[in-house]
Design a protein around this nucleic acid. Structure first.
Lengths: 226, 226
DNA sequence: TCAAAAGTGTTTGGGCTACACCCATGT
DNA sequence: ACATGGGTGTAGCCCAAACACTTTTGA
């Protein structure tokens, strides 16, 4: 046991890459660092791990505090541990990625901090290695969306196939053939057509779909190549 | 800065899932825990992260110390942080997976600890959450081998297509059609045929191949489904 | 009437699978 | 001679990609 006592201890934090989807774009929730060093740069939602919680719980707590939301999709990305990655003190940080529906977000504590949604292609300067965290998180999101309908976590509960396709186009930064995308998605047998239509995005009107209740978390065969 | 000072610090460790390949089987390097608690159970190669190093460097150091090898393929798997995952003291552990050629390993410090190679299908009881680390590491290995020739890290520098196929069969725990496997591998254009043959494993003799020097780390299109 | 999305159908090509088949050679 | 792996060829199937076409309706 003495061996344990000789060892160095470290501050351990979590940083959450919070993805949202709005106006046809993937967006990220960031807040401005209000104090030196690197004041004015933007930061991921983060916080320190506490004595009585796992890092998963810490990430969950951070999101609860900053977005007011509780039942959020959350997954580990990687751990960043370079000795010089922060400035004043060494911190080992476990990066997570989260998916939330911006329409559920609305007002919350995050606004008090000046938090803002940034389109993924127009990000500001970020502190420390947060840009690398985002890069890896996006890759994870693409992998995840390729084998599950996790993408629908970013949409309202009911959505049209146009909305779903636009979301996938935003995630993968490329276009999909409308007919083929529709056939592929429907062939997976995880979507359930509802009995009413959305008429705001097309003249003809498109049926709403929702994910079948028992298929939400299901692992599927490849949906899209990545 | 006061905010930093109030936070709890943690012991941070690395645990390495060391994969090897021998006699047609994937094997894992483990050593027996010599002291209580859980004396007699087996453990992954691990160690604490030090003040002046990243976790990557720590994992590298642990492998150097236990196997004598330096230039080893090493990749992060995930971080395990449940408060009760160890017994006497809380330790947050970053799991890595490593690939080494058993023929390069031979004698080393690890033998002094009683380290032993275990076939992946006949593992002993493991301490803490090490079995879960192995499960996730194997999954990572399968993904990695599916998009790169990382598998050849486990073979001698030159190898026959039979040896490569047997390795992939061991990694994915399923059989591959000999003809199709050969065609697929050669079509990737990353293997270079050498001008001599191996005659120990077949009457006819099979050409040796090696990975083209400039293609070792290359990301490929899908090699095998997983 | 026209544009734009909804929704369905068809064709094509590439790749994977399952085999068949010949070659070389040690026993 | 025969068993075994080395190595090549091929027919069938599935699926993704490309794209044609019809429907519906608001502007």
């Amino acid at each position: 046991m003495d061996y344990y006592k000789q060892q160095t201890k470290f501050l351990v934090a979590v940083d959450c890459v919070v993805f949202g989807y709005e106006a046809g774009e993937i967006k990220l929730l960031l807040y401005p660092r209000a104090f030196e060093p690197v004041k004015g740069s933007w930061s991921l939602m983060g916080g320190f791990v506490r004595e009585d919680e796992s890092s998963d719980q810490a990430a969950c707590r951070v999101l609860q505090q900053t977005t007011g939301l509780n039942d959020i999709f959350l997954e580990q990305v990687a751990t960043f541990s370079a000795p010089e990655r922060e400035i004043y003190e060494r911190v080992i940080s476990i990066a997570y990625f989260a998916l939330i529906r911006i329409d559920r977000y609305k007002k919350s504590k995050a606004d008090e901090f000046g938090a803002k949604w940034w389109p993924i292609n127009e990000l500001p300067n970020l502190i420390f290695d947060h840009d690398e965290m985002i890069r890896q998180a996006l890759k994870k999101l693409q992998q995840k969306a390729g084998t599950s309908l996790v993408g629908s976590e970013l949409l309202p509960r009911k959505f049209t196939l146009l909305q779903l396709r636009k979301l996938y186009e935003a995630i993968y930064q490329r276009e999909f053939d409308p007919g083929n995308f529709r056939k592929k998605m429907l062939s997976l047998n995880v979507l359930e057509r509802m009995d009413h239509k959305n008429s705001t995005e097309s003249k003809k009107g498109a049926y709403y779909y929702k994910v079948k209740a028992d298929k939400i978390e299901e692992e599927l065969e490849r949906i899209v190549k990545y």
